[in-house]
Amino acid sequence: MSSAFPSTFSSTRSLTRRRGPAAAGAAAALALALAGCGSSTGSPSMHGMSSASPSPSPSPSASHAMGDMPGMGHAAGNGLSAMRDGYRLTSKDAKLRSGKQSVYRFAVTGPGGKPVTRFALDQEERMHFYAIRSDLSGFQHIHPTMTGDGTWSARLASLAPGSWRMFASFTPAAGAGEGENLVLSRTVTVPGHATRTRLAAPAGSTHVDGYTVTVKGEPMAGMPHPLTVSIAKGGKPVTDLRPYLGTYAHLTAFHEGDAAFAHLHPTTKVAGDGGDGGGPDLAFQAELSTSGNWRLFLQFQTGRTLHTAALTLHVA
């Protein structure tokens, strides 16, 4: 695959609900850079390195194996397996069409082999679903819906040809794994001529939708380290962040080469008066399993718009 897509981009979409991720705490140099991917207006998912609105909340209501990853809670693993602790991510969808919206259907089976239908809320959702291409482009974060038999449907925005990995992050609400944060993944193929997106070089800050996002910290592989994310607009600190998923910012990361997954846990608390007015500094606890470059996706909300900044971070 050859180098193709641009290394920076941004877009916006209006939100149909309010949520909130959180923020960051401290140290010296780190590396990042933005990449984006156009807007997907009208789609329930976020397409590429772009800004978008979150998908509808799940209603508590199925190839290639790939991934265990740390999910929205404090899950162990890196998302690179379809099985963990007796739980399995299953799907009949080994291929998805390119250039059009599509639906990825899947289920989670428990240690007894039966579909799991009871999931605990984790950052306001029962299931967090992520799609990422093998070159770490095309990021989408979706909250799928579930039918009564345990089949989940994730509505994806247009996918570029290539190999994609689909991650499911969840917490069983009953059974042997009750209360355990799990992340499982599988791969799918999107047919067509695939051109590789070159990963943007690490840098200290990036821009999205008129906002400047700066990251400070010195993460080391396999150890928890604080990160501080600061957000400004027009040279002025931003203080009007609104909650998204219960915090002021949501931060996920994927490792270059194998797409190992990590969720960087927010430590900044949402204000008790409803949470409006967050920022400009957000604290996160980062625990990245492997050294090398990680692609970070920071989602934050202002007004009714969700912004997504893509950053490249080097981990020693």
Results as ranks from 00 to 15, higher is better:
Thr90Ile: 12
Pro191Asn: 01
His314Arg: 14
Glu124Arg: 12
Val108Lys: 02
Gly217Asn: 04
Pro58Leu: 08
Phe300His: 05
Leu184Cys: 05
Gly175Gln: 00
Tyr87Ile: 08
Lys92Gln: 14
Ser2Pro: 13
Ile231His: 05
Ala316Ile: 09
Leu136Trp: 00
Gly20Asp: 13
Ala221Cys: 07
Gly67Met: 01
Glu180Pro: 05
Leu32Asn: 04
Ala262Trp: 03
Ser51Asp: 15
Pro70Arg: 13
Tyr87Ala: 07
Gln101Phe: 01
Arg105Leu: 01
Lys95Tyr: 11
Glu287Gly: 10
Ser43Lys: 08
Thr147Asn: 15
Arg155His: 11
Thr117Val: 14
Ser10Thr: 15
Thr239Asn: 11
Pro172His: 06
Gly162Gln: 07
Glu124Pro: 00
Lys269Ser: 12
Leu227Cys: 02
Leu241Tyr: 06
Ala173Met: 04
Val188Glu: 02
Gly73Gln: 10
Phe261Thr: 01
Val188His: 02
His265Gln: 14
Thr90Trp: 00
Ser291Asp: 13
Ala283Gly: 15
Pro111Met: 00
Phe300Val: 01
Lys95Ala: 13
Pro266Phe: 00
Thr302Tyr: 01
Val108Arg: 02
Gly42Arg: 07
Met83Lys: 13
Arg304Glu: 10
Arg304His: 12
Asp258Thr: 09
His193Met: 11
Pro56Cys: 05
Phe300Trp: 08
Leu136Asn: 07
Arg18Ala: 11
Thr228Met: 12
Ser185Met: 06
Thr312Leu: 02
Phe9His: 14
Ala94Phe: 09
Gly99Pro: 04
Ala259Leu: 09
Ala168Leu: 00
Pro224Met: 10
Leu313Val: 11
Gly86Ala: 08
Pro161Gln: 07
His207Met: 15
Val208Ile: 13
Ser53Thr: 10
Ser10Trp: 09
Glu287Thr: 13
Gly192Ile: 09
Asp149Ser: 12
Gly79Asn: 03
Lys233Gly: 04
Met166Ile: 12
Asp276His: 09
Gly274Thr: 03
